[in-house]
Computed example of a mutant assay.
Amino acid sequence: MAKERTDDNPKSPEEIQDRIWELIEKIDIGMFTTWDGEQQHSRPLSARVRRDEHAVHFLVDVDGDKNGQVEHFPSVSCAWADNSHYKYVLIAGTARLTNDRAKIAELWSDFDKAWWDDATDPSIRLLTLTPENGELWDSPGKAVALAKMVVAAVTGSAPQMGDHAKVSL
């Protein structure tokens, strides 16, 4: 596993991978970014994290520009942010749109009723992101981050804000 060390990160690539999977599941809503051939487009989507499948699934509507964008340009990224705790994750990989009714039914939750009546709605599609690499910014928390910024402002040095690393997924 390739890992880029930044800020002298002491964690192993496996520990960073674990943390990335943990945070994307915890944060849930990610900004899913596609390309249309001219510009990027991002939109919030609720993640269904399945590390054992090496996949992040999203339920999406059959209508939507992202579907055609994914079909023509399957290289995508998704970013998750927990601003209150200064934790951020980015994964990039390949996306695929399917009409896998069994998987849609498996992933269905009551929260999806905001968009569709039930899992049998024929307009639901499955968007699957297969991660290839990830990046993590993992601060020890707001209070510690603020204290480090104050110290940095007083001393004139750059604050060490927590773990930052890139890994292959």
Rank of each mutant, 00 (worst) to 15 (best):
H72A: 13
N67C: 14
I124D: 01
L107F: 11
V56W: 03
L126N: 02
D52Y: 10
G64E: 04
A147C: 08
F111G: 15
D82L: 11
E53H: 15
R50A: 12
R50C: 09
I104Y: 00
E71R: 15
K66C: 12
P74E: 12
R101K: 13
K66N: 10
A92G: 14
P140M: 09
D110V: 01
A147I: 12
G64R: 09
A119T: 01
T130M: 12
A55N: 06
A55E: 01
V89G: 08
V60Q: 00
Q69V: 10
V144P: 00
L129Y: 02
R48L: 05
R50T: 05
C78F: 03
V60I: 04
S75L: 15
N133M: 13
A81R: 10
T98M: 10
W108R: 02
V60A: 04
P74H: 13
D110R: 00
P140K: 07
S75P: 01
S109Q: 10
L97R: 05
T128D: 08
E106V: 04
A145N: 12
D52H: 13
N67W: 09
T130A: 15
K113D: 06
P74W: 12
A102C: 04
V49H: 07
E106Q: 15
R101G: 00
W108C: 02
N133K: 14
V144N: 07
A143R: 04
Y88C: 11
E53K: 15
R125W: 02
N99H: 11
A79N: 13
T128K: 09
L59M: 08
W108P: 00
A102P: 01
V70K: 02
F58N: 09
I124Q: 02
A105S: 11
L97F: 10
D63P: 05
H85F: 14
R101F: 00
V60H: 00
D82W: 08
K142Q: 13
H72K: 13
